[in-house]
Design a protein around this nucleic acid. Structure first.
Lengths: 362, 362
DNA sequence: TTGTATGCGTTATCAT
DNA sequence: ATGATAACGCATACAA
């Protein structure tokens, strides 16, 4: 049969180089058992023949494909985008490819099917799916590394970061601070809410000062929640949302009621997504380094960077030289024009008595 | 060697069913050559054994993986997100998986490597990469179907859609209408710009009335371009941007200058992305059904829907029953609060003389 | 350090 | 309509 320039295989390279297929295999897999001279010789032959290892054949033999699955539930575009960036950066230069797996309620069955069919190198779970122990168990059963972004160490201390943001508001005179919470089912959202409580409690403001409205991370839910909070009397002087999209909704709600931001109301979000820079006024937010977190987490997958199975051998540098990622990442408040120190006369007088008592306790 | 419940293979199913492997293969591939009774028998055995065809082995034999690559340059998140949604909807139920391939300047070499390594079932090129004939040629050489979103038929008539939007502004009294153009290298952006010119020309407003500032589809470029346009005297009464992000930038620029939208300035975007609903005021935009376009385009890939190679045989319904997608998609202006008819006294008097002449010609 | 034989799970060819 | 056998391209166990 005539085959027009079918690609070169290991066999061809081996024949031309005058070695066995196994040597080529070792070369491909970066085995330390290939002498420097042999490697140089093969470099030449491979360049000349344009040989590219067939990923499908490797996958069949290794019982593992060169895919990394990013599983998300579509609830937070921006976080997903950032995570993706980091993952792709980590995969750069490797033969890995990133497949996206949007899973809603069928997360378990969908992931199961994917694992069965494609046997990926690794799975990355995005919040809020990263909470799901059942999904992690599925991966474990399939013997597939599972990275739970925001849940595994090293994670980001969202609670402390939210507390820092709220503390800034408190330090700048705000006392009636509303929170737009995220979905209850999300551990990440609960951590952020806890940070809000922490900051208030640190100032001696207990339950009586809590102003929490529920949201689901969507713009419209943020708008509705903010509308509720802004009906309160005395009205909050600041609203913090558990993500940027809801905070943008709060901006819209304020605009609808003719409430000036930040003149009469400070608004802040969380995650510091691109949206935060695109609102009017620009939205203060807590920067969470999702991309770098994802990139760092990827190091736990085999086949990433210049590390393959064989590299762990004597040839490679000692493990203690590999830079350790930080234990936890910093989430840092980014102050933008949507927040400001409380203005003279801002806030209803009714709120003041409680405040005067609270401040000294801080 | 003891192997704990390794998954069933074709071999197992064949043995249990008392047939040959080839029959199982035919069953899997939906061959019409499998009798109804045989199919029923195999249904049972397969359900019982939990057999799942091994995609890697199939890929090796077929010389093709079950992957679809989405290639984009990261320049338009929202469009990408929408396209992705459509693609995934089309793939639902199939064994295909979607891999994302962000490619910048290295688009050609990156795609080449991917095609070589992974031999995907198909490639989807997003604008502005969909323009690139070299990428399409690469796919052709690899014998891989290539869907050029927004370029292939059926595409969306962006030019007419933009013209319709501008015509609405004209019909509502606007005469000085600025355009924030997209990157020159993008055919899509050029079509939109052409639509702007069409609408003006149809009203007898020729070159003298053009107010075009360059942008690159980013928020900041939109802000800068709008800042330029708003320095003009007489000032434009409306600004249309070639995408939503730039239009959001225009809103920000207007806010910075204290220009009321839509009171003193109407602003509109293009694509009708989620962002358009999240600005203050909500952004008028041209809805482009990217998701449905992508979904429809996917029908051109093999292995989508209930169609496999064998399905095209006598067993399946005749080709003329398959619903044809529309030849071109409609882009429809979505009017939101960022646009309004021109107000009495809006626009500098200096502009009027030219306008008075122009209107009768329409 | 390098080579040999065999397996991975499926599809294609050609026969029946 | 179904079956026997040879690819598909690489990895692994074991031998040398």
């Amino acid at each position: 049969m005539i085959r027009t320039r079918s690609r070169a295989t290991m066999e061809d390279v081996a024949r031309i180089a005058g070695v066995s297929k196994k040597t080529i295999s070792r070369y491909i897999n970066n085995s330390p058992d290939v002498s420097r001279s042999m490697r140089a010789r093969l470099d030449a032959v491979i360049a000349e023949t344009g040989f590219v290892p067939n990923a499908q054949a490797r996958a069949l033999a290794l019982r593992r494909t060169f895919l990394v699955a990013l599983v998300h539930d579509g609830s937070d575009r921006a976080v997903r985008e950032a995570a993706e960036t980091g993952i792709l950066r980590a995969m750069e230069g490797s033969e890995l490819a990133l497949v996206v797996l949007p899973r809603g309620d069928d997360a378990a069955s969908g992931l199961h099917r994917f694992l069965e069919r494609h046997a990926p190198t690794g799975v990355v779970l995005l919040p809020p799916l990263a909470d799901r122990d059942d999904l992690a168990a599925l991966c474990a059963r399939a013997d597939t590394p599972c990275l739970r972004l925001g849940e595994d160490e090293p994670a980001c201390d969202e609670r402390a970061a939210m507390a820092a943001l709220v503390e800034w508001l408190l330090a700048n005179g705000h006392r009636r601070i509303g929170l737009i919470a995220g979905p209850d089912a999300s551990a990440s959202a609960r951590r952020r809410e806890a940070g809000y409580h922490d900051a208030l409690a640190a100032r001696g403001l207990e339950r009586g000062a809590w102003l929490v409205a529920a949201g689901d991370n969507s713009f419209s839910s943020g708008m509705e929640a903010a509308a509720l909070l802004l009906e309160l009397s005395p009205r909050p002087t600041a609203i913090v949302a558990c993500n940027d999209e809801m905070a943008a909704g709060a901006l819209a709600a304020a605009a609808e009621k003719g409430i000036a931001v930040p003149g009469e109301l400070s608004v802040a979000g969380f995650d510091d997504t691109p949206l935060a820079a695109m609102t009017v006024p620009p939205l203060a937010s807590v920067h969470v380094p999702w991309a770098r977190m994802a990139e760092a987490a990827m190091a736990r997958l085999p086949g990433i960077a210049p590390m393959t199975r064989h590299d762990r051998g004597a040839d490679s540098f000692p493990a203690d030289v590999v830079p350790e990622p930080p234990r936890t990442w910093q989430g840092t408040p980014v102050l933008r024009a949507s927040v400001a120190p409380i203005a003279p006369g801002q806030g209803e007088p009714a709120a003041m008595p409680r405040l005067r008592r609270a401040i000294p306790q801080a």
